[in-house]
Design a protein around this nucleic acid. Structure first.
Length: 518
RNA sequence: GCCAAAGUAGCUCAGCGGUAGAGCAAGGGACUCAUAAGCCCUGGGUCGGGGGUUCGAAUCCCUCCUUUGGCACCA
């Protein structure tokens, strides 16, 4: 990540149902990356949003008895509220019903038609009237039949538009062979590579209006709307300035691109790994303009996949009300091995919050603040030559910045957090070793007392600054208590800080009491 | 079925050829600046089973077992 600008996207969420914890995890992950790279002085463009078109939205809307547009905008509002609650600092917001997006999608369709990448063909197959979709052999049960869950199944002949994906399959295979690091974690890259071999044929990118009207109309054939995936994937470029009428938008697009797409494991194959990459190739993106993917896992509840049918869907609104957005953000980032599934439990959340944030960092700050107020009237002046012990703690703090950056670049946020807390541990051990409360009793130890308190205060500031991408709100409160701005990558080692003026000590991370039933 | 990933202390995971590790949880101790927080000490897990390579394997190879995921038109 040596580029001066970073373009981060998340999947755009489908507006057929309210957000759940999995949606929240992905946005929190992306937000932590966006904030981390901003702290490193990069020009970050963080794009997220919602996917509003398609069959499922149309169905959900008709069940609710309202037009698809109203239904989509109601759900969209819920997502926006959640992101606000969780402090998601996105720079761009994608809504696929937006006219700008529609224009780019239609522009691309026309381009592909002109370069002979599209064709119209007839397809016949089994169609479920109830589910409003074509069925494949995958949907057959053990007896080779389509079960009752599909309702009436008829054979249907339909004309549609196809994208000549097969023209690009070979290119995609060799691209992935030459760029295996395009997908993280590595085994997902293998999975994608293997999937290409097993696929054949082209991609159907239209739906006849007779059965689906909620979509972007084909510019050259108004009896069809665009298949949702083809529509949705384009958000990554349409909302970033690609093919904008404003030339400065276009040039900022090219300074941002290529993107890091943060997505869930369920939509790598085929949507992003196959459709999106071949679409980009067809549109004219070169090999070194291809995006990369950070593929995360699922959040399970007691070992089981979250699903509406199991009735174990966790509501992120309620979680952030009960525990606070910070606690939720912290727990998800500290606990999850990026790329793997994780098991969610409020017990673990409470445990980690209490032991690391409350007892670790919170208490470090609080004990420091109290001693500075008690022994130094709340004002701490930088000692001209701190003791070697104090210097050693401070230099560990400075070194931690590098390890955090390295861990983040390696897509290991949990490792980054671990190294921040190893610094906090060192500071608490340092406090025991120096015992400022003993030094305070001996006037001849005044310099050593100043050094110790200084090192503790400065380390608290370093730890809070390093933690700020994960806990933007709470770390601001720490900064307020220290009455000092948070540090960044450009000033952390040469901070001009020469005084701490402590505000009234107040627990930033009050312990979550557990004896009450949750 | 095919292709992958994982199986290490109660829990979450690190180690990936050289005498089994971390954090949390559990037990004990000394202290008091602090959100009864922090600090110190302790805990002995056949590293999924079996076989092989090697002076030596959690670490390489084979095989079996268990769990999870992907295998295009549903987003």
């Amino acid at each position: 990540m040596n580029r001066p600008s970073i373009f981060i996207t998340t999947a755009i969420d489908y507006t057929n149902a309210p957000p759940h914890l999995g949606h929240a995890y992905e946005k929190i992950l992306a937000d932590c990356y966006a904030r981390h790279y901003r702290q490193r002085g990069k020009a970050v463009f963080f794009l997220t949003g919602v996917d509003q078109h398609g069959q499922k939205v149309q169905q959900a809307a008709s069940r609710a008895g309202i037009p698809p547009a109203s239904y989509a905008s109601q759900i969209t509002e819920l997502f926006r509220q959640l992101w606000q609650k969780l402090d998601i600092s996105y720079d761009g917001w994608a809504e696929t019903t937006h006219p700008t997006h529609k224009k780019v999608v239609q522009n691309i369709l026309s381009q592909l038609l002109n370069q002979n990448d599209l064709y119209k063909a007839e397809h016949s197959g089994f169609y479920s009237v109830r589910q409003e979709q074509f069925l494949t052999d995958k949907e057959r049960n053990e007896k080779g039949e389509f079960g009752p869950e599909w309702g009436e199944v008829i054979e249907l002949v339909e004309e549609n538009w196809y994208f000549r994906l097969s023209n690009y399959r070979q290119w995609l295979a060799s691209f992935l062979d030459n760029h295996p690091d395009c997908v993280f974690p590595p085994f997902r890259s293998v999975e994608l590579r293997n999937a290409i071999n097993k696929t054949s044929g082209d991609l159907c990118i239209s739906r006849p209006k007779s059965r689906l009207s909620w979509g972007i109309e084909f510019p050259f054939d108004n009896s069809f709307v665009t298949y949702v995936w083809f529509d949705a994937l384009i958000n990554y470029i349409s909302f970033a300035g690609f093919r904008s009428d404003d030339p400065s938008e276009v040039s900022s697009f090219w300074s941002r691109w290529p993107a890091l797409h943060i997505i869930g494991k369920d939509i790598l194959v085929p949507a992003h790994g196959i459709y999106w990459l071949t679409m980009l190739k067809a549109i004219g993106f070169s090999d070194d303009q291809m995006p990369s993917f950070l593929v995360h896992g699922y959040i399970n509840i007691a070992g089981e996949k979250m699903s509406k049918t199991l009735g174990n869907v966790v509501d992120p609104f309620r979680l952030s009300e009960n525990y606070g957005a910070g606690a939720l953000r912290y727990y998800l980032m500290a606990e999850c091995i990026c790329g793997q599934d994780m098991d969610f439990s409020t017990e673990r959340l409470t445990l980690r919050y209490n032991s690391e944030l409350a007892n670790g960092l919170g208490n470090l700050l609080n004990r420091t603040a109290n001693m500075v107020r008690r022994y130094r009237n709340g004002t701490l002046i930088r000692p001209p030559s701190p003791t070697p012990q104090a210097n050693s703690l401070i230099s560990q703090a400075i070194q931690t910045w590098q390890s955090v950056a390295a861990s983040m670049d390696a897509f290991k946020p949990q490792e980054a957090i671990a190294s921040i807390f190893s610094l906090v541990d060192s500071a608490n051990k340092f406090a025991e070793a120096e015992s400022p409360w003993k030094l305070a009793k001996d006037p001849t130890q005044s310099h050593r007392l100043d050094s110790a308190l200084w090192a503790m205060a400065l380390t608290s500031l370093h730890a809070a600054s390093l933690l700020s991408p994960f806990l933007p709100n709470e770390t601001q409160k720490i900064a307020a208590q220290l009455q000092s701005p948070l540090l960044t990558y450009s000033n952390h080692s040469s901070s001009q800080q020469d005084c701490f003026q402590f505000a009234e000590p107040q627990p930033v991370f009050p312990r979550i009491e557990t004896n009450t039933t949750s």
